[in-house]
Design a protein around this nucleic acid. Structure first.
Lengths: 231, 231
DNA sequence: ACAATTTTCAAATGATTTTTTTAAAAACGC
DNA sequence: GCGTTTTTAAAAAAATCATTTGAAAATTGT
């Protein structure tokens, strides 16, 4: 006999709420009890549909990633790199700060995972995010020119990512104190994104003189790289 | 009769370890059991000296803040603002990334508190950090000139803080993958700080054209400010 | 309408963990 | 050595939480 359709509805509701709660509290502080309560389901529902909490977490991550990637705009390679950077930054900021149904979760769950790693989604993360990081590095390289060291490009990427990422943290406390709404207006997000864009383009150009042979005496491992890419 | 001096030693050890553990795990995931174990004290010690876990947390925060502030170098007002910014950034990054006995805790505990607020130290935080924020805003104002809007100054401050703050997050996972040492060398931290400084000075100058009457149509509250200062 | 199956539910289980207390023993200052 | 402070082991108490269970309810296909 076929499955009932209210079943998958509950399952989906559970998954959506799980994204909420994991994004808010991280894996360990999120409880099945709360997830079920907020989903209007019985405590047993998670175990019925997902087996256990860990599997629910992985499923929530997967859904969040898929939403994140599916809404992705890849700026055409023909555009000048400054424009491509602008598009990328606006995109990140909007997803984080503007309420358009759960698309901001990715960055927030990522952050919780960074702050308190569970290790449950490392493989998933690497597979899906590595290409995106390369894309950003490529844009920066195009702006900065071939003369700059790879270290410098990575530092620029980190500066940009960190600028955006920071808003995830302050979002909650900032906005709560302003009043009800959990998200910024599109105009406010635009203002922030535009700021980060201009700030960063100028920043990139200003540090472009950092060639690879900078600071030779302090080099450690002898492989010519001071920093390696990680998360 | 006078108090025994081994008593305050234990108390101090407890407090130091508490900073470690709260910085690593945040309030809720830190346990008294672990703190006492790592301090080489009995489980009952925390309750004996501090009463309960919450009081220990507040005490740990207070100590961390005081260490943070006591080591503070206030760059002389005579210096050009670019130099003062450089000093401030180097200072933050060194405290976060270089191992000089627990001075980096402040930023890490702050981060945990931001990611998962307990609300226990809000007042403390506001009282001690607000002046420092003002200092940074003043430096930026000096660089950017009187023409720029207050919003723009705040956005610049946020860009700088966020660039620094991000390294707290990636520090752990980054460095673990590189091998044992929990901290960067001073030279690596210098490189990062110098990058952030140049990047940001250029950034500030690039956005200095953002006057207050930008984006009037999207203004919300009518108080002329798009953003208010928070954490 | 009925049987088969899926889903929901309340209650309880079980396990683990963690804070807090207690009362006695040890260590210290004088 | 005396009085006090500190430490200790053990256990009590409290608080969670994930998970299970078995029965009830709801849905589906016939």
């Amino acid at each position: 006999m076929a499955k009932r359709k209210d079943g998958i509805e509950t399952r989906q509701k559970l998954l959506d709420v799980a994204c909420d709660v994991f994004a808010e509290k991280g894996f360990r502080e999120a409880t099945i009890t709360e997830i079920c309560r907020r989903a209007g389901a019985n405590v047993a529902a998670v175990n019925y549909y997902f087996g256990d909490k860990e599997s629910l977490y992985v499923a929530a991550w997967r859904q969040t990633m898929e939403q994140f990637l599916s809404n992705d705009i890849l700026p055409s390679k023909d555009l000048p790199p400054e424009t491509r950077l602008r598009v990328a930054i606006h995109h990140i900021i909007h997803r984080v700060l503007v309420d358009d149904q759960s698309r901001g979760y990715f960055r927030r769950i990522e952050l919780m995972e960074l702050a308190n790693p569970t290790g449950l989604i490392d493989d998933l993360w690497k597979a899906m995010i590595a290409p995106r990081q390369k894309e950003l590095l490529g844009i920066i390289r195009d702006i900065i020119g071939p003369g700059a060291s790879e270290d410098t490009v990575i530092l620029c990427k980190t500066s940009i990512i960190n600028q955006c990422r920071g808003y995830i943290l302050t979002q909650k406390s900032c906005l709560e104190s302003l009043g009800g709404s959990q998200f910024l207006t599109a105009a406010q997000a635009d203002r922030i994104a535009e700021h980060i864009t201009r700030f960063s383009i100028a920043g990139i150009k200003a540090v472009s003189g950092q060639a690879d042979d900078q600071a030779d005496s302090t080099r450690e491992k002898g492989d010519g790289k001071m920093f390696t890419q990680s998360k």
